[in-house]
């Protein structure tokens, strides 16, 4: 089947049906920021903000999104927004949440519910920000944390992170005579969050906007900690066409490289957008320069491991029924 046609039907159908009614017309993350062409992370943030609405405070870790959106004296943010450093978005958000709570209790600010939302890239979340995030989740702050996972430290020039997939070429994991790119398997961050026993964990991708926004809305409604891991395509870092951003996200999901699911109070559920059968992984990786050097054997290993991880996930999904 012609893939382009398939995307058009899937995506646009959904939008015709839901978008006009459900999606906030207001832009809280304004155009004119300095993200690269075809940036999935900026799109995801725009969608997230629409789902969150105005009674929200955003705490941003250092990274691409902070840099492209707040070049003084300009700002793309129409929501109250704070950035302090790279490793501490969840800790700053802890303070914001606690501050708003106590000020509201003491009658020093308006008596209304404002959601605190921490955001960061994969580096700022799964590596250097992991300790702060673990602490914030474990303490049970009423906060949503969204990781925008573009699978490397993009802001500093495509270095590998703990979320970089197997085999990918990065500027610190380059393929060469003695190396085949990134040797490690992507850290399973959503699973680590599940292990914190928080009420809500989900994976998402900007290529499924309605699904992503619904998950953000659900997380917003939970009074307690919640976590969304949003795959965010980075054409610059993945060495793919900037116009392929949406398609690439869908291929990541359809091949099972990045499955969409939710874990509500420990119960796993596959998201509705997951296909019945997974596409071959090659459909996804052959379009990206970062995997160009992989041999058929390596692709074979990659494919088997994706299947294995998917099977592990499905076991959890089935046992949750």
């Amino acid at each position: 089947m012609n893939t382009a046609k398939q995307y058009r039907s899937g995506l646009v159908e959904n939008f015709d049906l839901y978008a006009p009614k459900l999606v906030d017309k207001e832009e809280y993350f304004a155009a004119g920021h300095r993200a690269c062409q075809g940036c999935g992370e900026a799109l995801a943030i725009r969608l997230m903000c629409k789902a969150l609405g105005r009674d929200t405070v955003i705490v941003n870790a250092t990274g691409c999104m902070e840099v492209i959106s707040t070049m003084y004296p300009t700002t793309a943010w129409k929501l109250p927004w704070m950035h302090v450093a790279f490793p501490n978005a969840a800790a700053v958000a802890s303070g914001v949440e606690a501050g708003l709570k106590v000020l509201r209790r003491k009658g020093k600010i308006k008596d209304r519910y404002v959601k605190t939302v921490g955001i960061g890239g994969d580096g700022g979340t799964v590596d250097i920000g992991l300790q702060a995030l673990s602490g914030a989740m474990e303490r049970g702050h009423d906060m949503l944390y969204v990781c925008f996972d573009n699978e490397a430290y993009m802001n500093t020039g495509i270095q590998r992170s703990g979320a970089t997939p197997f085999g990918a070429s990065t500027t610190t994991a380059p393929p060469g005579k003695a190396s085949r790119g990134n040797r490690t398997w992507k850290k399973n961050m959503p699973e680590m969050m599940v292990a914190h026993n928080i009420p809500y964990v989900a994976t998402a991708c900007h290529s499924y906007p309605i699904d992503f926004m619904n998950k953000v809305k659900k997380a917003r409604s939970i009074k307690g900690p919640s976590y969304i891991h949003c795959l965010s395509v980075c054409p610059t870092g993945w060495r793919c066409d900037s116009k392929s951003c949406i398609k690439m996200g869908r291929l990541a999901v359809e091949t099972g490289a990045f499955p969409l699911y939710e874990v509500e109070n420990g119960k796993y559920r596959l998201s509705a957008d997951m296909p019945e059968t997974l596409r071959p992984l090659e459909d996804y990786i052959k379009l990206q320069g970062r995997f160009r050097h992989l041999t058929p054997d390596e692709i074979g290993y990659f494919q088997e491991r994706v299947k294995l991880e998917y099977k592990k996930l499905m076991t959890k999904v089935k046992s949750s029924r």
Partner: peptide
């Protein structure tokens, strides 16, 4: 807030102060 490190202690203070506390 019983933070998990001093880095987070100061970060949480920053957040709280930013919130007006």
């Amino acid at each position: 807030i019983t933070v998990e490190s001093e880095h987070s202690a100061m970060s949480a203070c920053a957040g709280a102060s930013g919130a007006g506390a």
